[in-house]
Nucleic acid binder design. Structure first.
Lengths: 218, 218
DNA sequence: GGTATCCGAAACTGACGAGTTCCGTATATA
DNA sequence: TATATACGGAACTCGTCAGTTTCGGATACC
């Protein structure tokens, strides 16, 4: 394995879109998203080492040369693809408010969301063994996958405190990690499905009791 | 990637230690443990795809040919190595009893245990991207790494119920997964250390509140 | 001591994949 | 319509690694 995910050279004074020396310099970046999406798909299915540039090119109906015209290496393509994976999902500043913490948490369980989380975790799994050698990949994954999940829960918990539903003494930071951690573990480690039932057992069996609430008609 | 981790042929009617046709058939399996240990080490450091048979052989001070004399393929060596990784650690039927759930949980935090869990998680990470293609690897990992961790917590929780310290209504199965899930997430996904402090925040911030107990002088 | 067997080391084979080069074509500008 | 550019596709180089073969040396058994 050529384990330098990223070439250490700090970018050759980026030429930019309009190059001086020549008049007609047009670079068509319109197909970049297709390529990045293809990379994510292959990554989720095959993992970093299993993914080949040929697979990505084929999936994006592009030539391998085109990939190398845009990204200097497989590693950089992957980092870019992960960084561009930020979800079309719910945004953190505009979460629906059901009036109760349990309602808010349960409202997060939607097929669309589950499916997207699933995909992200597959990508995660495929990159796992490479993470320890690539700080930039760790960063990309953190801001695209890891951070958003905990942030949502943190907001919901803060709101519950604000409305007086739960005590301000609870360890929000840690509790916000419970669901993300347990779903990731379920999916990655034990290889079992994260379905509505499992999520409800986390909410009603762990999170709510931990903040001093109880599930409805237990 | 040659993604047939295991050759599908079901073992050719295992010759066994004493072969009939020939008189002097001796197979020295005394160095198998060294080789398996070496495999685990390399696996933890490089991941499945990064691990080469040459690395394992060198680490075990053995010849590559010797490896292939004992295991038919890299995949089978890895499955075997993982299966033989069951810890020298505390056994599940003989857990120290401190008299309180918190005491029991905190007593599990020992450098020795942390370190071993760490190693296991590194191996886990290295195998992650391969898991989806190898059911036998999933099984091996489950019984060597995953199951024991939750089992310990389940026992401690049952004991707490038995002594009347916590209610029998709590969702033991799910709560027993909290610590394993959160430590795995911390280590694998967020790449931060699982130290005493983090473990205490799980115990005092999530587990104890979830079962209706509270941390000492919060 | 003779013999059979297993050992570690090293050379070898074959496949595969990253990255490069080349070529015929499509397209946008002029 | 002429020209330049980037395109997809295919052929190429080159390193690496799984798995095999070969060999000289050590060791247990007779």
């Amino acid at each position: 394995m050529p384990l330098d995910l990223i070439d250490s050279t700090p970018a050759p004074a980026s030429p930019g879109p309009g190059q001086p020396g020549r008049p007609g310099r047009r670079r068509d970046h319109s197909r970049d998203p297709e390529i990045l999406d293809a990379a994510i798909e292959v990554l989720a299915e095959e993992g970093y080492d299993g993914m080949t540039m040929e697979m990505v090119a084929a999936r994006a109906k592009a030539g391998k040369a085109t990939l190398y015209r845009r990204w200097p290496s497989k590693g950089e393509l992957v980092v870019d693809a992960v960084a561009c994976m930020k979800s079309r999902d719910l945004d953190v500043d505009n979460l629906p408010d059901t009036g109760t913490l349990r309602g808010d948490l349960v409202a997060m369980i939607k097929p669309r969301t589950l499916e997207e989380a699933d995909r992200k975790m597959q990508v995660m799994a495929g990159l796992m063994s490479v993470l320890s050698r690539s700080p930039e990949l760790v960063d990309a994954i953190n801001s695209a996958i890891v951070a958003p999940r905990a942030e949502v829960n943190r907001r919901l918990l803060e709101r519950a405190i604000a409305r007086g539903e739960i005590s301000a003494e609870v360890d929000i930071a840690t509790i916000a990690l419970v669901a993300p951690s347990m779903t990731a573990y379920r999916l990655l480690v034990t290889q079992r499905p994260v379905d509505r039932e499992y999520l409800l057992s986390i909410i009603d069996g762990v999170v709510l009791p931990a903040v001093g609430l109880s599930a409805p008609r237990a």
